[in-house]
Design a protein around this nucleic acid. Structure first.
Length: 438
DNA sequence: TATCCACAGGAAATCAGGGTGT
DNA sequence: ACACCCTGATTTCCTGTGGATA
């Protein structure tokens, strides 16, 4: 049946657009606050720029630059600096401009796809299919293409988030080894690898053969920005992004301070500023005050959690639901252990149609992932005679969790289901024991 | 001090679903 | 149609483990 809407409350889209156009303009150039934006100047990265320039300058003479690594936490400007230097190098007067091929190993995450990605970016047309061919065939085709298309100039292969590649130790090392050996098999073209990593210790998992070529050069370290550094970066970007006089006193300082707390993450700082601007814009405000920054921070956090959970595989969502239900229905509300999760999970997979039940081993992995994302905390604890287990807590508000889970079709109907497990005394009994021991 | 709980988590195998060239 | 390839998710098999208990 149709609802009888009050006419006065009807959303007038025409008027909305009109008001929107007349209303305060905040953004002059929104893109300047994207982390992919390469500004004219990169504040506080002089040393890194110089080091990278020194290592790559021999490309000007057509010599092969050495392969090297860049380390630094997220938002310390690694990718931006590389892109910056590559732009500058391309502006120099030289016969054969070098090629730069960017590979984000988080997106292009398998050996086959890395080779295919390199091939396809150079070839433009006549692409290699996304799957189906043997790897060595692609490798040979790639060699031919490099010699033919890149000719006697340099091809830089930038592997961003290279640590993700090594998570699969065997396959990751194999492809890296293959890439380092490209030069040996090439006739005219030369390649040079640049690895970008968030984790300092990722080198531990690297094959010695790979280290010998990728780790010979001293790595370039990107230290986190401090609050003052971040202020400089934000000021530069804000000048491009906003109209004059939009930013109120203290906005940049607050963004910088908040991001400095998060390991000096410049990406975070820019996100805060952009979100604050968007909130002000939506509120049809003429200026951005620190209030908007505070709201932006809450919003960003909520958005992140929501998007993460809704983007998880259904099985992971069900496991989160199991944790939620245990906390909701067990009388001792604060303790969840892995065994209980599995029990309740097994129960609800029976209720939801079309779901198959996974093994404990897989669930253990999913629980770890949830913990890594900051949705739950999971600390392994030895209970001596009572075995070893993980003590799990929901790290987000129960209400928020419920709101998000309610958006998932297959789950929304079971959020009031009381698991049999929590009705028996088993959970309570265990909780009593654990409580004493913790 | 040996035992033993209740799991953790690594490595390799398997499976299904996407594709290939011949 | 066929033999074969790559990938991601999962299973199977397995070894490891901290400390309360007997």
């Amino acid at each position: 049946m149709l609802k009888n809407y009050n006419k006065d409350f009807k959303f007038n889209i025409e008027k909305f657009y009109k008001d929107y156009l007349i209303g305060a303009k905040i953004f002059k150039n929104r893109d300047a606050l994207e982390s992919s934006y390469i500004p004219e100047e990169l504040p506080h990265r002089d040393r890194q720029i110089r080091e990278i320039a020194e290592k790559t300058a021999c490309a000007l003479f057509g010599d092969t630059p050495p392969s090297f690594l860049c380390y630094g936490m997220t938002g310390t400007g690694k990718t931006a600096t590389i892109r910056y230097v590559s732009q500058k190098l391309a502006q120099q007067d030289m016969e054969n401009k070098p090629w730069w091929i960017y590979i984000n190993c988080n997106v292009v995450s398998t050996p086959y796809r890395i080779l295919a990605h390199i091939y396809n970016t150079i070839a433009r047309k006549e692409k290699i299919p996304p799957t189906g061919l043997p790897k060595d065939i692609i490798f040979k085709r790639l060699l031919g293409l490099l010699d033919q298309k890149v000719g006697n100039s340099i091809c830089f292969l930038v592997l961003d988030e290279i640590d993700i590649l090594i998570e699969n130790k065997k396959a990751g090392n194999e492809i890296l080894y293959d890439l380092t050996r490209l030069n040996v098999n090439l006739d005219v073209c030369k390649t040079s690898l640049i690895g970008i990593s968030n984790k300092l210790k990722f080198k531990e998992n690297l094959d010695p053969r790979v280290i010998s070529s990728l780790g010979k050069e001293s790595p370039i370290i990107f230290h986190p920005y401090n609050a003052n550094n971040l202020k400089d970066i934000l000021r530069d970007r804000a000048n491009i992004a906003f109209y004059d006089g939009i930013l109120k006193e203290g906005v940049i300082e607050l963004c910088a301070a908040l991001a400095a707390k998060e390991d000096g993450d410049a990406r975070k700082a820019l996100q805060l500023l952009r979100k604050a601007g968007e909130l002000a814009e939506r509120a049809q405000n003429k200026t951005i005050s620190t209030d908007f920054v505070e709201r932006a921070q809450l919003d960003l956090e909520k958005d992140y959690i929501k998007e993460y959970i809704l983007g998880m595989p259904l099985q992971a969502q069900i496991i989160l639901t199991a944790i939620y239900l245990i906390l909701k229905f067990s009388r001792e509300r604060n303790i969840v252990i892995s065994g209980d999760i599995y029990g309740v999970y097994a129960e609800i997979t029976q209720i939801i149609p079309g779901i198959n039940q996974l093994t404990k081993r897989s669930i253990s992995d999913y629980v770890n992932e949830l913990a890594l994302a900051g949705i739950i905390t999971a600390d392994t604890k030895s209970m001596g005679f009572y075995g070893r287990t993980k003590i799990i807590n929901l790290d987000i508000d129960m209400k928020i969790a419920e709101g998000i889970l309610r958006k998932i079709d297959k789950i929304k109907d079971i959020l009031n289901y009381q698991p049999v497990m929590t009705q028996t005394d088993r959970v309570k009994l265990r909780n009593d024991v654990f409580k004493k021991l913790i």
